[in-house]
Simulated scan of single mutants.
Amino acid sequence: MSDTTKPYALITGASKGIGKSIAHELAKQGYPLLLAARSDQELKALSDDLEVKYNIDIFYLSIDLSINGASQKITNWIKSNNYPVAVLVNNAGYGVWGDFSASSLNDQLGMMQLNMNVVVELSHLLVPILSQQKQAYILNISSTAAYQAVPTLAVYSATKAFVLSFTRALRFELAQTSISVTCFSPGPVDTGFAARAGLSALNKMAEKFNMQPDEVAKMAVKAMFSKKSEVIPGFTNIISVYANRILPKAFIEKTAAGIYKI
């Protein structure tokens, strides 16, 4: 391994999709990595690949972040190994698609735990560790769904609105510290998100509107290191968010319902 003096970057949901691409992007920039996700096999494969390509230290923890206490386990892992962490990427998350009343309550609550609680927990637990660095960063991955209510993705869009609001407030609170906080809100990305959500409608739209995870990751990391407060990647996504601000909410929600209809 290299004798890099850079502190570590912790990435949740690192085994696939945007998280995996962010791991590649940070590794390319010489950051040793701490990776957390459910799949031990995928984490090991990613770690081995990054170590060979970039000659950096990689450690991983296979853990289900949707289970209560997972954030504390990650923090204990970091503390027990004295990993100096300067970057926290809160990327782990998933969606549940379908009419709210017909969808599993356990699935909805699990999604809320992962999409919201883990972001809050890890941010709170790691701020004291991050503050030990001369410069540190928190990158929270939200979604363009944060900017509107989305029927059949009702809870998911609400969780992402929470992440956006929380990030804005946390950034303000930490403005006089060494920690910069950024919210990154992509639209559709070519990952396994739609498949896990059971969202066939989004799969059909993918060929026209999806961005590639490597492209999105590069933009996310650039936004974080540039200390941006809030970034929406892609011209189409920026226009759609702007439209949400000026058009009647009833119209926007009816349009979204048509796109994501069951």
Results as ranks from 00 to 15, higher is better:
Ala154Glu: 05
Ile141Ala: 07
Ile129Glu: 15
Ile138Ala: 12
Ala158Cys: 01
Tyr156Met: 03
Met116Asn: 08
Gln135Arg: 15
Val155His: 01
Gln135Gly: 06
Pro128Ile: 05
Met116Pro: 00
Leu122Asn: 11
Leu139Gln: 04
Ile141Asn: 05
Ile141Tyr: 08
Asn140Val: 00
Tyr137Met: 01
Val119Asp: 10
Ile138Trp: 09
Thr144Trp: 04
Ala145Tyr: 05
Pro151Tyr: 11
Val155Asn: 05
Gln133Ala: 09
Leu139Met: 02
Val155Tyr: 01
Ala154Lys: 06
Glu121Gly: 02
Pro128Trp: 11
Pro151Leu: 11
Glu121Tyr: 11
Gln135Pro: 03
Leu130Gln: 13
Ser157Gln: 01
Tyr147Ile: 00
Val150Pro: 00
Tyr156Val: 03
Ser157Lys: 03
Leu122Tyr: 15
Val127Ile: 15
Ser143Cys: 00
Tyr156Lys: 01
Asn140Ala: 05
Ile141Cys: 06
Val150Arg: 02
Pro151Thr: 08
Leu139His: 08
Ala145Asp: 12
Ser131Ile: 12
Gln135His: 15
Leu122Gly: 13
Leu139Asn: 06
Leu130Tyr: 10
Ser143Leu: 04
Ser143Gln: 01
Gln133Lys: 10
Gln133Phe: 10
Tyr147Asn: 00
Gln132Asp: 15
Val119Cys: 07
Thr144Asn: 09
Leu122Thr: 11
Val119Trp: 07
Val120Thr: 14
Val127Asp: 10
Gln133Ser: 14
Gln135Ile: 07
Leu153Gly: 08
Lys134Pro: 01
Gln148His: 05
Thr144Arg: 04
Met116Lys: 02
Leu126Tyr: 04
Leu130His: 08
Val155Asp: 05
Val118Phe: 02
Ser123Lys: 05
Ile129Tyr: 13
Gln132Val: 01
Tyr137Arg: 05
Gln133Met: 11
Pro128Thr: 06
Val127Thr: 15
Leu126Gln: 09
Thr152Met: 10
Ile129Ala: 10
Ser131Trp: 06
Val127Pro: 02
Leu130Ala: 14
Met116Tyr: 06
Ser142Pro: 05
Leu139Val: 01
Pro151Gly: 11
Pro151His: 12
Gln133Gly: 10
Ser131Glu: 15
Ser123Phe: 07
Gln132Asn: 14
Val127Leu: 14
Asn140Gly: 07
Tyr137Cys: 02
Thr152Cys: 07
Ala154Ile: 03
Val118Gly: 01
Tyr137Asn: 06
Tyr147Ala: 00
Val150Tyr: 13
Ala158Lys: 03
Val150Thr: 15
Tyr156Pro: 06
Ile129Leu: 15
Thr152Gly: 04
Tyr147Asp: 02
Met116Gln: 11
Lys134Arg: 14
Ala146Phe: 01
Val119His: 05
Ala136Tyr: 14
Ser131Gln: 15
Ala158Ser: 08
Tyr147Gly: 00
Tyr156Arg: 00
Thr152Trp: 15
Ser143Glu: 06
Val120Ala: 12
Leu153Thr: 07
Val118Asp: 14
Ala146Met: 04
Gln135Ser: 13
Pro151Cys: 07
Ser131Lys: 15
Leu139Ala: 11
Ile141His: 11
Leu130Cys: 07
Val119Ala: 03
Leu139Lys: 06
Val118Ser: 09
Ile129Phe: 08
Leu153Asn: 13
Pro128Gln: 12
Pro151Arg: 04
Tyr137Glu: 11
Pro128Cys: 05
Thr144Gln: 04
Ala136Asp: 10
Asn117Ile: 07
Val118Trp: 06
Val127Tyr: 10
Ala158Val: 03
Ile129His: 13
Pro151Ala: 08
